[in-house]
């Protein structure tokens, strides 16, 4: 599916299940997500991760609702626990349906997000390995001066921002000299379209979700 359409759909579903309390809907969302991930041949490890990572918060909230909610409702405890899993699996569904590059390209071409944001972010992501090593360098050089920096030390964040200022200046200048003009029209080697069936899937998904959420049989 087109990443922009899929993103909108995922947002819509995520927000709607936040405002409703139907366990069954959460379970269906998780099942559909797993099916989509299977279709995209997601590696086994990603299912394990999606099962394990939300486990602690899901169990945590189950107990706290069970003990400390006014109704002490088992039903609502399960709503919250499955909701956390539904969020996680919606994330998995999206992650395995597309890539970051495709998503950003689609947001540029289909959602018309300003190019300054699209390419600014893309450019910044090239710095991830440099950022990892810079954090190590900042910590190491502080240790060599007798100081341990922790995640709450203002100096650690300050030195990070000093590096970020430098790099952002250099990259922005280089991108400008590569012809990038903020929010100016560009051509596209790969044009991203929205196939008609995307809309059909979106409408069916939303209607289906309403049927589950508001069906008298729940």
């Amino acid at each position: 599916m087109n990443p922009t359409i899929l993103l909108c759909l995922v947002f819509f579903v995520g927000v709607e299940i936040s405002f409703t309390s139907v366990i069954w809907a959460n379970v269906v969302i998780i099942t559909i997500s797993v099916l989509v991930m299977l279709w995209h041949r997601a590696p086994l490890l990603s299912y394990v991760r999606l099962l394990l990572v939300p486990l602690i918060p899901a169990v945590g909230i189950w107990f706290s609702i069970r003990y400390f909610s006014t109704a002490q409702s088992v039903h609502f405890a399960w709503v919250m626990a499955t909701r956390i899993y539904a969020y996680a699996f919606l994330g998995g569904l999206f992650t395995f349906s597309t890539t970051t590059e495709k998503t950003l390209a689609s947001l540029e071409q289909n959602a018309h997000i300003p190019t300054t944001f699209v390419y600014g972010m893309l450019g910044a992501f090239n710095f991830v390995p440099k950022i990892r090593s810079e954090v190590k360098i900042i910590r190491a050089s502080a240790q060599m001066r007798g100081i341990d920096l922790h995640f709450w030390s203002p100096q650690l964040l300050f030195k990070s921002i000093v590096a970020a200022l430098n790099w952002s200046e250099n990259l922005a200048e280089a991108m400008t000299s590569h012809g990038f003009t903020e929010n100016a029209p560009r051509t596209h080697r790969t044009v991203i379209r929205i196939p008609w069936w995307n809309y059909v899937v979106t409408v069916i998904s939303i209607v289906g979700l309403q049927a589950i959420l508001f069906s008298p049989l729940k």
């Binding site: 910044a124 710095f127 964040l157 970020a164 952002s168 990259l171 922005a172 903020e182």
Partner: peptide, 24 residues
Amino acid sequence: RWHLRDVILITITSIFMGIIFFVT
């Protein structure tokens, strides 16, 4: 207006914070 270098600056700073706060 947000300029290119503002977007890059804030994104890089956020990545820094993500990596620094990873332990949390």
